[in-house]
Structures are given as structure tokens and as C-alpha cells.
Design a protein around this nucleic acid. Structure first.
Lengths: 231, 231
DNA sequence: TTAAAAAACTGATCCTGGTCAATTACTGCC
DNA sequence: GGCAGTAATTGACCAGGATCAGTTTTTTAA
């Protein structure tokens, strides 16, 4: 068995959030009364690393990136499609500030839930709490996988991983328009943007993908998987 | 502000587990009746990546490492001193198998708690559930930090991180006997064991540490911190 | 519509840290 | 006490991918 297969470097956990369905009408009302829906325009920041946390955020609709900033370079932690939480770490009283920043890729709707209300529902509804535990566990396992990839795989393998993740899990189709810049891909896969450009070009020439500006199409899934596995 | 400081690459989260104190006498009894204490000898495996999970493990006493295996090389995820859980990801029904292996460094006592009993307490006691959420959150934040380090810092910075973590958080003293092999340090810091040897030698020559076989002493904390920060 | 800024691309160069191979030091263990 | 077997160490070599510098294309904004 090649255990590489388990570790795909994918940036989203496959966990499908059903948590709000578990609330009683009263709990639901409490959340509704203590939350707001905000529309963000493409490219806007949702939260800023180091800033105070006072809400848990939930992506109702859209696509965002969660990343660590450090001067020039940053590291993309997760790509969050709709149905994901951002800032769950705020549930621990230890973390009054965001350990990361987040920004939307496309116009998105984010629900901000007051931490106190969220905590109170956690305390009253243990099925809900269990669901949150599930999400956090899934996140850990996923981040372990990425960890593994960034440490052991070569650049080609990491890039193949990212392409597969985008196609299979985020857009769920072979062909899609890439909202991420080359720099984003670089930050996702832990390499420089120049290297990303060069390698994408190579993939294109070798017929693994078909690329044209922002449009990308996976042309040879098997080969990409093989590259992802062999590193 | 240099935000590098926030990301120390340390392998343990600072979260101090008080969760079992939160149980009612009945809940406590349930856990006691559904758990066993096992003594492991230095070097023994506690769990094996890919194996079925049927217990949550809690390090009552000792020191263990949690790591991902892949053929020859592996990656050390966490060093777990007493008071830490191993295998919390099993709480999510999605993960029937361990995503990692674990092994004790020194003679250790591990409590194995049946997952079903653990889940049932989670459902009955939301303060307990919240505490577990806290632990999982703290873990995520910590792993993000390591993630950042392994991706951005140079080898010297990562090594300095590990030495500081061992001294400040794990052993809590300047001088200690290293239970980790050079290979372990390599797997912690994402480099080859040869490089670890060379760099430790360099640190020793430069007077940052005093090293003699398994015994290690931090000689210049400030300089180590500076190296850790500047990468 | 055009100017300015940002992103994408290309080529040349360089350096960190991995790999390989060989030697020396420990650690059990019979 | 001697003999594996493992861990630590050292040196030589080199390659993956970063960095830098410069050009072209695309996007944004005025």
C-alpha cells in the first residue's frame, strides 16, 4: 500500500456541515438574533490576522481563502467554499485574536455569529457540539495531510495535488475558471510563483492540463494522480 | 511587528487539560468503567497508522510522539507530554482509522477510553464538550504555526525552534537529556538527519548550545530566539 | 481611452540542504 | 567481553527550486 494516497494535500476538508439543522427552533432564533449576513465583494478581507475575534464566521455562499501573513510572503491554509466556518478557534477562550487572515475570492455572503450566542448553543445542544467537534477533527486530519505533502512531496507532486483538489473538490468539474492567481497557487503549494508558472507550463505542454489564461481544464486525471502520489 | 514570533513551530499546544475534572461522579464512573490504564515501555507503539480506532487515548504519565509514516521517512506531528489526548480525531465518525502512528519515548502510562463511552459523556456534558473543543482549537492553531515554520523558515530557524520548544515547553529547564534521536529531530523539523547533525554541531561551536551525546543545554536563549525569528 | 499598476512569464544564476557512501561510536545482548 | 545492529558523524557531490532582473500581458482606475 502506498500511503501517499491518503495524504492529498487538499485544502478543504470533505466534511459536509449540517450543524445548523441540529438546532431547536429556539436555538435557531438565538443564532439568528445574534448574527448578521454580510456581502463581500471579490477581493475584500473578511478578517485580519491579529485582530480581535468577536464573531464566528460562516460562508453562506462564495469562496474564500484563509491564510497566514508575514511581510511579503504568506501561506494559504485553507480554501473555504460555502458551508465552512472561519474562526472556530475563537471558541477557545485562549485565542482572543485571529491566528490568520481571510479574504474572499468572489462575491460572497458571510454570516457573522456572535461568539457568546454560539457558545451558549454549544452548551445547550450537545449534538451541535458534537458536530462542531467533528468539523474540528476533520480539519485536523486534513491539515495533517497537507503538512505531509508540503514536507515530503516534490514541487510537481504538490502542484498536481492542488490542481486535483480544485477540480475534484472545490469546483467539482474538469474545466473551471481559476479565481486564484499564480501567487495564490504558489502560497498553497509552498513554492515561488515563478516555479508555479514554469511547472504549469510543463503540465500544459505534456498534455496533463489545458490552460488558457484563467481557464483551466484537467486533461489527464490519471497521470496527475500518479504525479501526486509519486511526489 | 514581526509576526514570525507568533509562529514558533513548537510541537505541543500549551493547552492545559482540565477536562476530566468537569465530569459528574456518574460520568466519571462511566469513563472509569470503560477505560483501562496500560503501561508502555520505552519505544513501544501505542497506535498504528491505518489501524482501526476503538479508543481515545490519554497520556496519564510519560512522553510520546505522534507521527505520519511513509515507507522510510516519517513526519513527526506532535510531542505529547502527560495530560494530552491522542486519537481525538476518532470522535468524528468519518475517521474509523488512525491517520497517524504513536510511540512512547519513555516508560509511560496511557489510559484507553472507549469511544462510545467518551461520546456519551460528550453528549451529556456540554462543559466537557466545550473543553474538548478548546483542545481541538488549540491543536489547530498550534499546527498552523508549525505549518508556517516548516514552509517559510530555513533549516537553522526550524532547528532553533525545536530546541527552544524542548527546553521551554517540554522539559521546562535549560539542561536536559534528549530522549529524541537525531532522526526524530530531523522528522520534527522536516530535514535530513545529516543536516541536523551538521547544524547542531554548528550551534555547539557557536556557543548557542552545549551538547554532549544525549545531554543538551541551552547556552544562549536570546540568540536562539533570534535565529528562530529570522528564519 | 489611456495611463498606471499588478500579474504573468522567461531566462540566468546561485545556494540551501538532500543524497550517497564510508567511518566511527553506542547499546543491547548472549 | 565481544559481536551484531543501530545511531551518529563526516565529507563529497549535486539538484531542486529560490531569487533576481527584465519583459510582456492583463487588469484597474481615472
Amino acid at each position: 500500500m502506498n500511503s501517499n494516497q491518503q495524504f492529498s494535500g487538499c485544502t478543504i476538508s470533505s466534511y459536509d456541515c449540517r450543524c445548523f439543522d441540529l438546532l431547536s427552533p429556539e436555538e435557531r432564533k438565538l443564532i439568528d438574533d445574534n448574527s448578521v449576513q454580510i456581502s463581500y465583494k471579490k477581493g475584500e478581507m473578511i478578517c485580519k490576522q491579529g485582530g480581535f475575534v468577536s464573531q464566528i464566521m460562516y460562508v453562506e455562499q462564495g469562496l474564500a481563502k484563509v491564510f497566514i501573513e508575514n511581510g511579503g510572503n504568506s501561506l494559504l491554509l485553507r480554501i473555504t467554499p460555502d458551508g465552512s466556518f472561519i474562526g472556530l478557534s475563537a471558541l477557545s477562550d485562549e485565542f482572543a485574536t485571529f491566528p490568520y487572515s481571510a479574504k474572499v475570492y468572489i462575491n460572497s455572503v458571510i454570516r457573522q455569529v456572535d461568539v457568546t450566542a454560539f457558545r451558549s448553543v454549544l452548551n445547550s445542544n450537545s449534538r451541535f457540539a458534537t458536530e462542531i467537534i467533528n468539523i474540528l477533527s476533520a480539519n485536523s486530519v486534513q491539515i495533517y495531510g497537507r503538512f505531509y505533502c508540503l514536507t515530503f512531496k516534490q514541487a510537481y507532486g504538490r502542484l498536481a495535488d492542488i490542481i486535483l483538489c480544485l477540480s475534484e473538490r472545490i469546483f467539482k468539474q474538469d474545466k473551471f475558471d481559476l479565481p486564484l492567481s499564480r501567487k495564490d497557487i504558489a502560497e498553497l503549494s509552498g513554492m515561488s510563483s515563478e516555479t508555479v508558472v514554469r511547472m504549469l507550463k510543463k503540465f500544459n505542454e505534456d498534455g496533463l492540463i489545458r490552460m488558457n489564461g484563467k481557464s483551466m481544464e484537467v486533461a489527464d486525471v490519471e497521470k496527475l494522480h500518479r504525479i501526486s502520489e509519486t511526489g
